Amino acid sequence: MSERLAPKVGIVSCLAVLLLLSLPYFFAPATAVSVYYETIPVPVHLLDTFFALVALIAFGSGLQDRSDRASVAGVTLVLGIFMAVITLWWAVVTPSATIVEAARMDSLSGHRWALAFVTLGVPASAGWYARSVL
């Protein structure tokens, strides 16, 4: 049961990361969002998007038995850990008023912590998947 449920949770986690990454673009000007995401030297939004898309494809491949489940679990676990570490670093370093000052958007003040929390779902589900297939 958990061999099928864990990758489904991983897919939902990846989709949630992608949704939260794109959310500021709907509420703030693109220039403000670029300032918001570029507070660290690493392009967090680009890396998280790339890692989430690769993990999404890998979880789907493992779910439909198109790839070795243990390999998929390992790949998604590593991608999820990198994604979570980069996002947590960005969330800690980014001042709370960056997006609020740049875009005058008070509704996005907790966005960075929500994104950091959601990215933790990817390595958690990948670890669960690894535990169930090994």
Rank of each mutant, 00 (worst) to 15 (best):
A130S: 12
V17C: 12
T94L: 07
V78F: 02
F59C: 06
T76V: 02
S109H: 11
H45T: 12
G121M: 02
A103V: 09
I86Q: 02
V35L: 10
S109F: 11
A124D: 04
L77Q: 00
L15E: 03
G110P: 01
G80F: 02
A116H: 02
A30W: 07
L15Q: 04
G74A: 07
M83H: 00
F59W: 05
A102M: 06
P123E: 05
V12A: 12
D65T: 10
G10Y: 03
T31R: 08
A114R: 08
S132M: 09
T119D: 01
L23P: 01
W90V: 07
G127H: 01
V12R: 04
Y25E: 03
M105S: 13
V33Q: 11
S109R: 11
A28N: 08
V133F: 04
T87P: 00
G60L: 05
D48K: 07
G127Q: 00
A84N: 00
L79K: 03
I40R: 09
Y129M: 12
L15G: 08
S22E: 07
Y36H: 14
V12H: 04
S67P: 03
V133N: 01
G110E: 03
V44K: 13
V42F: 10
K8E: 12
V42S: 06
V54Y: 04
F26M: 12
V93K: 05
C14S: 05
F59P: 03
R66H: 04
F26Q: 12
L15C: 08
R104W: 15
Q64I: 14
F50S: 08
E101P: 11
S67K: 10
H111W: 15
V42Q: 06
A124W: 07
L63Y: 11
P41D: 15
